[in-house]
Simulated scan of single mutants.
Amino acid sequence: MFYRPADGHGLPHNPFNAIVTPRPIGWISTRGPEGDNLAPYSFFNATAYVPPQVMFASTNAKDSLANLRETGVFAVNIVEEAALHRMNASSAALPRDTDEFGVSGTPKAECETIDCPRVADAPAVLECRVIEVIRLLGRDNHLILGEVTGVHLRDDCLVDGRFDVTRFRPVSRLGYRDYAVVREVFELARPGED
Rank of each mutant, 00 (worst) to 15 (best):
Y3W: 05
R4Q: 12
D7H: 13
G8S: 09
H9W: 04
H9T: 09
G10D: 06
G10Q: 06
L11M: 11
L11P: 09
P12G: 11
P12R: 13
H13A: 15
I19K: 08
I19L: 12
P22H: 05
R23D: 04
P24K: 08
G26F: 00
G26D: 00
W27V: 03
S29D: 01
T30L: 06
R31Y: 06
G32N: 01
P33K: 14
G35Y: 01
A39G: 14
Y41V: 02
Y41T: 03
Y41D: 02
Y41I: 01
S42H: 09
F43H: 08
A46P: 11
A46T: 14
T47A: 14
T47E: 09
Y49E: 15
V50I: 15
V50T: 15
V50P: 11
V54I: 13
V54H: 06
F56N: 03
F56C: 05
A57S: 11
T59F: 11
N60V: 15
K62T: 07
L65T: 06
L65Y: 05
L65F: 06
T71W: 04
T71E: 07
G72F: 08
V76M: 01
N77E: 03
I78R: 10
V79K: 05
V79R: 05
E81Q: 13
E81C: 10
H85D: 15
M87R: 02
M87C: 07
S91Q: 04
A92M: 12
L94W: 03
P95I: 11
P95Q: 10
D97G: 11
E100M: 05
G102L: 12
G102E: 13
T106I: 07
P107H: 00
P107R: 00
E110D: 12
C111K: 03
C111R: 02
I114V: 14
I114Y: 04
P117F: 00
A122I: 02
P123G: 05
V125Q: 01
L126A: 10
E127K: 02
C128G: 02
C128L: 02
V130N: 04
I131D: 07
I134N: 12
R135W: 06
R135C: 09
D140L: 04
N141Y: 08
N141Q: 10
L143K: 01
I144W: 00
L145V: 08
V148Y: 02
V148M: 03
G150D: 01
V151W: 00
V151I: 07
H152A: 13
L153K: 08
L153H: 10
R154L: 10
D155N: 06
D160A: 08
G161Q: 01
R162P: 01
V165Y: 10
R169I: 11
V171A: 02
R173N: 09
L174I: 08
Y179I: 07
Y179P: 03
Y179M: 06
A180Y: 04
V182K: 02
R183L: 11
R183E: 12
E184P: 12
V185N: 04
F186W: 14
L188F: 12
D194R: 14
